[in-house]
């Protein structure tokens, strides 16, 4: 999880789009065309690798190595995809990765929301000291943990198990920090009112705080699911058994074995990428709407 350094969470996304319509025409005249041209060219550079991946994945082997390069295969085939499912045990990889990502994400988000709530909304002795001590672990690179955590895993007999993949990452500092920030947007009077009405602390957390945190919640769920799905180094080190591989490790191994069968390799890469992209694009609008709504409310 080395890549979770920073995400612009909520309130960062464009609320301005809503009140900008009037000046749009003027701006366009002032040369937005130029902006579109540059951004368009950049966008093509950004998606060429994906297009080439999909294009190659539908080509028979002979076409992948032919000149000149063709965007559309002459004899499109799906045999590459069938091959990947057979040889890389793709169904198994999907199941393993989904299973682990879902469990990790649930733990990550639940514990972070709970702790964010506690650090953000309660006043008790030692609160800030504890918070900053936990926060300090944010800066430590995972490479520092790699060796000791692995040896500890072996010592307690958890090497090559899913427990070893999940347990060290149950708590996560980044989401906790984000939730704590988000708690400042929730009025404390609301919580006090619920207490006066006799609501228990857990009831307040589950029925008031969590529903009110939806915007942060969905954004963080999306990002954590993505990070957990794409996690590589720790599964590579801990899991030895091919049946227990997650998709990134499975793909890396597969690429190592079948390099030069480019069609099959690209089919494998597509299968590793597509579910997470589809999911993200599906919830993307929802996330942005949630962000815009909370932005307006706040």
């Amino acid at each position: 999880m080395a890549n979770q350094d920073f995400v612009g969470i909520p309130s960062q996304v464009d609320t301005r789009a809503l009140n900008r319509g009037a000046s749009d025409f003027q701006r366009l005249r002032r040369g937005l065309l130029f902006n579109y041209l540059i951004l368009g060219a950049g966008a093509i550079l950004m998606i060429v690798p994906f297009i080439w991946m999909i294009s190659t994945s539908f080509k028979p082997q002979a076409e992948t190595v032919s000149f000149p390069p063709r965007l559309f295969p002459i004899n499109p085939t799906i045999s590459n995809y069938i091959d990947v499912f057979d040889r890389a045990n793709m169904g198994r990889l999907y199941w393993n990765t989904t299973f682990i990502s879902v469990i990790k994400t649930v733990f990550n988000i639940y514990t972070s929301a709970l702790l964010g709530y506690i650090f953000g909304k309660f006043v008790f002795r030692g609160r800030d000291v504890i918070f900053y001590i936990l926060l300090s672990t944010w800066i430590i690179p995972f490479e520092v943990y790699l060796i000791p955590l692995y040896l500890m895993t072996v010592q307690v007999g958890l090497a090559n198990t899913y427990t070893a993949l999940i347990v060290p990452e149950i708590f996560t500092i980044y989401a906790m920090f984000m939730f704590r920030q988000f708690m400042y947007t929730i009025p404390t009077e609301l919580i006090d009112a619920a207490r006066i009405d006799g609501a228990g602390e857990w009831y307040i957390f589950h029925r008031i705080i969590i529903p009110l945190s939806k915007a942060a919640l969905f954004t963080l769920i999306a990002f954590y699911f993505m990070w957990n799905w794409n996690d590589f180094l720790w599964p590579l080190v801990v899991i030895a058994d091919q049946d227990k591989y997650v998709i990134t490790v499975g793909l890396a191994t597969f690429v190592g074995e079948y390099w030069s069968q480019y069609g099959v390799i690209m089919a494998g890469a597509s299968l590793a990428i597509i579910p997470i992209l589809a999911l993200f694009i599906a919830v993307q609008r929802f996330i942005i709407e949630g962000v815009v709504l909370t932005g307006l409310k706040g």
């Binding site: 937005l32 966008a43 998606i47 590793a272 997470i276």
Partner: peptide, 26 residues
């Protein structure tokens, strides 16, 4: 930019969502 800004942002964001293992393969 207003029109198409979300789409453009999404396109530039695609590689961020992709696992590095997969994009390195490509």
């Amino acid at each position: 930019i207003k029109r198409g800004s979300i789409l453009l942002r999404l396109i530039y964001f695609l590689p961020v969502m992709t696992s590095v293992i997969a994009s390195a393969t490509i």
